[in-house]
Nucleic acid binder design. Structure first.
Lengths: 125, 125
DNA sequence: TGTACATATGACAATATGTTCATACGTACA
DNA sequence: TGTACGTATGAACATATTGTCATATGTACA
């Protein structure tokens, strides 16, 4: 009973290519972490939060008002962002101010948006 | 009966900040598309496929062998990637070769991996 | 110490996502 | 035309994710 995987391997078209690429692949752990990083960006609430924080540090309340969402929803996402070290928090009395933890984040946002815009452009032609 | 959102707004700490940031926010649609772009990157199977294709064009079978996954799993993800215009396909007889559709993709992968690596570094200190 | 406000957290429901199996489609070639 | 191979697709299941409600925590201040 052959699985499709076995079929693929036995009849594999480009074993040489596969080997070469395999040697160049990063460690699985690194790929998982990379996927996790992008996963964090892959939600419109979190992206909106990040974009907002790239303009100014803000407290939870501010973000609720800006995004017109309930406070626990924002807090949950901020927790995710904080655990991924994408966002950092600073307490001032009762209020907690959030901001981007790193300038890479801004660059990733910009590069992504650039791609989205160019896709948009090419759609209209 | 006040919702937490209303509480936030009425007591809002930084209405001025919220207004300023609000003016600078991209359109909601753009933010959704940006999130969708990152969502596509946010899965380890797809990231692995993309990284592999950034080294060389490959057919479905090659990817199955490289990632040790079943063929339909790879095909489904390739379909997602193709629909997002991140990957393109080229047919040659029975075989279909996939490759990256755009050089932005490579830059996004690199920038992301750079961030992951630097996080890794700072963890060990 | 008690009250009010800003934020965090846990449980839950609804939805989305990824992989698998079975099977269909398309091409080459006997 | 029939068979074989490479790939695509649809349904189904398992798991993950998001927002909501209710409630807890922490801080300021009377």
């Amino acid at each position: 009973m052959k699985t499709s995987l076995e079929v693929c391997i036995t009849e594999g078209i480009h074993q040489a290519v596969v080997n070469t690429v395999d040697r160049k692949m990063p460690e699985q752990v690194a790929l998982y972490e990379l996927a996790d990083l992008f996963k964090i960006f892959g939600d419109s609430t979190r992206i909106s939060i990040l974009w907002a924080l790239s303009e100014s540090e803000m407290c939870v309340c501010d973000l609720c008002a800006l995004l017109k969402m309930k406070q626990p929803a924002i807090s949950h996402q901020l927790k995710n962002l904080k655990q991924s070290r994408i966002v950092k928090a600073r307490r001032e009395g009762k209020i907690i101010y959030y901001s981007l933890d790193d300038d890479h984040i801004r660059r990733l946002l910009d590069l992504g948006m650039q791609h989205v815009n160019e896709l948009q452009m090419s759609m209209t032609h």
